[in-house]
């Protein structure tokens, strides 16, 4: 129990640090967005001081102390008020994010979990049939595929399956004539659009887990307790699962949590390539259009997402590995 409390406390502290950094870093940058807009206006002719004031007022450039700004900032976070998007004016930032979030959550969630499961199972099989043809094929194959950049695979898939063969749509999350709703027709259409982006992630995602799992399990199969399990006359299934795989999966779970940050970076590329309406594409647009409120909120959301996923992975590890619970207590 203490382990779980400790992990939660750790989560709260990192969350606070992330929120604070998100507040501090933009204020350390030189210049401000108002100046940028004013600069653009000066290009078209002389600028009225009233215009400058109007821009500043519109953007809400603060004139209070840093501490009270920080306090206000925390307050608006709690209320869920992230301001108004510049590019999608007058929609609030939260509206844009809540539109995009489900797309990414489903695409990345499903593909990463699936990739992890496929990789772990293949790796376990490779270790169990060590040095067999299956093992060499899977190990070499995953080393090869794992070294390919996946945006390149995405482009290749796009070209071959969407452009040349025309089997799949080349962009978007759903067809233009289908409106998002809770219907089978929409779900089918969304899945159809999601296949290519999902596939391009799924090609490379399992590679790392295969190699990790195989190596861990080769080791756990060589341990005395596994030899003892065989000597005990346990069934092959029990030896492989409860003794070999059960111990070998633990480092992979930790690895999964650590990999999540990097995964989100990759999502930006995939969503941009397929013009997929998720958080990644939104972030890309926000950066391109210097949509500061949107960017800031997205960064914060991503950080919180990674932290939450890490917390879950820690909890899972706590359930799976009795030694971890003990160490932290």
């Amino acid at each position: 129990m203490r382990y779980f409390l400790r992990r939660t406390a750790f989560f709260v502290i990192t969350l606070w640090a992330a929120v604070t950094l998100n507040f501090v870093i933009p204020r350390l940058q030189p210049g401000d967005p108002a100046e940028a807009i004013v600069g653009q206006l000066t290009g078209q002719g002389p600028v009225d001081p009233d215009q400058i004031r109007a821009v500043r007022l519109m953007l809400g450039v603060p004139d209070t102390s840093l501490l009270s700004q920080y306090w206000d900032y925390l307050g608006s976070l709690v209320r869920g008020d992230f301001g108004i998007s510049y590019t999608y004016f007058p929609y609030p930032v939260t509206h844009m994010i809540s539109e995009a979030l489900p797309w990414t959550l489903v695409l990345v969630g499903v593909t990463q979990v699936l990739g992890f499961l496929i990789g772990t199972v293949l790796g376990a099989f490779a270790a169990w049939r060590r040095n067999s043809r299956f093992d060499s094929f899977v190990t070499l194959g995953s080393q090869f595929v794992g070294s390919l950049p996946f945006f390149w695979i995405a482009l290749l898939l796009l070209y071959l399956l969407a452009f040349l063969a025309g089997w799949f749509p080349d962009s978007g999350g759903h067809a233009v004539d289908v409106t998002p709703s809770w219907s089978w027709a929409f779900a089918g259409d969304a899945i159809y659009h999601g296949i290519l982006p999902a596939l391009s992630i799924l090609v490379t995602a399992p590679a790392g887990w295969i190699i990790g799992m195989r190596n861990n399990m080769v080791q756990s199969l060589g341990e005395d307790y596994t030899r003892l399990a065989r000597a005990k006359g346990l069934s092959v299934r029990r030896v492989a699962l409860a003794y070999g795989a059960r111990v070998a999966i633990l480092p992979n779970v930790t690895g999964f949590a650590l990999a999540l940050g990097g995964i989100l970076g990759g999502t930006v590329l995939v969503e941009t390539i397929f013009d997929y309406p998720g958080l990644g594409r939104l972030l890309m647009e926000a950066v391109g259009a210097r949509d500061y409120p949107l960017m800031q909120a997205l960064f914060l959301f991503i950080t919180i997402g990674v932290l939450l996923a890490n917390l879950l992975a820690d909890f899972l590890l706590g359930v799976l590995d009795p030694r971890v619970r003990k160490e932290a207590a």
């Binding site: 005395d224 000597a231 409860a242 009795p322 030694r323």
Partner: peptide, 14 residues
């Protein structure tokens, strides 16, 4: 049956 060397490892840790 058998007992292996007491290398701390003959019981499944989980």
């Amino acid at each position: 049956s058998t007992v292996f060397q007491s290398s701390m490892n003959s019981l499944n840790p989980v």
